[in-house]
Design a binder for these strands. Sequence first.
DNA 1: TATGAATGAGACTTCATTCAT
DNA 2: GATGAATGAAGTCTCATTCAT
Lengths: 213, 213, 213, 213
Amino acid sequence: MEKSSKATPGRWRKPKQARSLERVERILDVAEAMFMENGYAAATTKEIAAQAEVPIGSLYQFFPDKAAILEALAARYTDLLNQRLQTFDTPEMLQLPLSDYLKQLTEGIEQFFVEYPGYRAVFMEITTTMPEVDEANDAKLIETMASILPKLHASLSLEDRKVISFVLVKAVGNLLWISLGQEPDLRQRLVIETHRLAFNYLNAWRQSLPSTK
Amino acid sequence: MEKSSKATPGRWRKPKQARSLERVERILDVAEAMFMENGYAAATTKEIAAQAEVPIGSLYQFFPDKAAILEALAARYTDLLNQRLQTFDTPEMLQLPLSDYLKQLTEGIEQFFVEYPGYRAVFMEITTTMPEVDEANDAKLIETMASILPKLHASLSLEDRKVISFVLVKAVGNLLWISLGQEPDLRQRLVIETHRLAFNYLNAWRQSLPSTK
Amino acid sequence: MEKSSKATPGRWRKPKQARSLERVERILDVAEAMFMENGYAAATTKEIAAQAEVPIGSLYQFFPDKAAILEALAARYTDLLNQRLQTFDTPEMLQLPLSDYLKQLTEGIEQFFVEYPGYRAVFMEITTTMPEVDEANDAKLIETMASILPKLHASLSLEDRKVISFVLVKAVGNLLWISLGQEPDLRQRLVIETHRLAFNYLNAWRQSLPSTK
Amino acid sequence: MEKSSKATPGRWRKPKQARSLERVERILDVAEAMFMENGYAAATTKEIAAQAEVPIGSLYQFFPDKAAILEALAARYTDLLNQRLQTFDTPEMLQLPLSDYLKQLTEGIEQFFVEYPGYRAVFMEITTTMPEVDEANDAKLIETMASILPKLHASLSLEDRKVISFVLVKAVGNLLWISLGQEPDLRQRLVIETHRLAFNYLNAWRQSLPSTK
DNA sequence: TATGAATGAGACTTCATTCAT
DNA sequence: GATGAATGAAGTCTCATTCAT
């Protein structure tokens, strides 16, 4: 615990690293808000720094360029969503009947989008601006999904699991994501329909295979 | 039925309007290519004009600003896709068994995306930059879809048709659209899976209702 | 007074020249309004033509360039103001006591500015943009004034008349002109003060010379 | 009290602020010259920056837009003229006979216009382009004048002082200002006439009131 | 390490004027 | 003569990023 015990005895100085972390978070929060408000292109690094009360020079010490802020935001969310997905990879969950399981999953994901409205804004920009990042993100989610699937239905081949996960992540994800922006009534119905879509899809797969869950 | 037999025998003069239309088309084509290449933000009006061999001033006579070019591109595609959708609103099509019908539809839409790879790039930008336009575009497609549905299943309520169309347009559209960027093998499988998704979804609806097709 | 009795028996066509005059007037009126609204620089020839319902090409047949419109406006006003000034060069007027004469003059000029609020806008631009034109305009007014002065006081030398006219035109003109933009109360007082200024100035001259009016 | 005797003994570093101030001054000087040469509209920010040897980006750090340069110029002159006016608000000056006092004042102002020929160009543009700024500027001068007047004549009401100051500032100011552009002979006479105008105006006021200076 | 003034390429857009029809 | 689409030079201003302090 160096940095001297004597010197500058008055003001306590927060460990540098902690201060940095705080700043980075503040930058990300501000950037997210601004991206949501007017889009990535309209936001300026200067304004982000100003609102985050961080000198522009410091911002560039944390992020090599503007795009990196968006990337960091995306990473933050991918981690978060992945964690949420893993929530559904527990014995209690997996023992539920398929329909119920998917109901939980569908609602859980919708819930996630409600909790993090920034997800939408961030990935809209990402999809357009950095397809690779978007791809990578989805790949992760698909992988997570693929690792859950065999527990729902044992006899799925790796190939099948990948494709099914792809379809689920993209279709279900997209639908729930879009539903967010809709009127409450329609939105509620959309969640139900999304469940219907997912259930019947997976159910059809189940019936086409020898053993079922 | 020539454009005059006697007068102005020498140089043939293209009607003004035709020349303008040609220019507008050229601008749109060039812009589309550039938007696909590096994105909307990276494209410059100056370069678009140059490549389209149209003076920049003329470009601004046709389009009030850069965004208007993107909008026009979107409108062009919405019309095109709508027309394609209407292709499936014929007696011959509608008499097919549901599965076959959806196979045609799925493949037809995929085909469309193959034919017009610009669709993707354009609507990616649109979704981010001009959500209203995107909304309007989807609304049109959903409406068209909703007008086809009752012929597939008579007893659907208006409300149901709207929701189902929404789900189909968004999920199927998104899936096929994304599949475009995938490896051929995966892509082929995705088209099949999309069909499976759509069929089982609609089939579930059918079975939950009194009379069926 | 037709323009031929036989030819083009159907629609009557207004003599070309008359139509042109009308158009020119319309252009000037519209231009004046626009110059007053947002200034000369902000007005565009295209918009002037559009509002005057005259094709832009025609506008350029009447006026070689944009500046010419401003010049024409100035000329229109110079003539008008000169005429108004000549109103004070009548035997009845000139027999009035100096104070009364100047009261009439002051109020008459103020009245003119009220009648033609465009005068202000036009000459503001002119002064800045085309000092020569402004100079010429003032020179005319000064000359007119100088031709009236000897009737008020016979023994003024040409040199004196010129200087006095200069002072009167510039100071009185400016003051009345500015007063236009003031609150009614202040404006009324300014007219009175302008008269006081002019009267005491001329009166001082009178007393410094041998014979008086 | 040197800027440190020990530390950084080598290169002397001009304080940041000083450098900025210098740049701002240079920009203003260059802009003034260009506005005088061809008018505000003809001057370009790019050229101003180039001649001032300041990057265009820096120019825009000091001034939000082109108009702000003109405004700054106006403010600079208003301050200057106000200071000059205050020169006439001293006991020695105020004890002079009215005629002598006004002679000093008239010549002092004329002198000012000679010293700062840019004043004319700047306020010509300002009057047209930003009447509010012009108004504010004149209001300041009028106020200063009004604060001097009671010392010339004690029994003037506030209302009277305001109007008299208005007349003096506008008429005398305008006359002297215009005289600048005239031939030397005429100019000299105009200064004399301006004095005559002002003196007889104020003198008339004096005689109409009970006590005099 | 921290700061923020400095940089300048280049983006979008305007508009007076022309001239082919 | 009448028309108005066409032209393109040129203007203002932005902003991601750097680097001297």
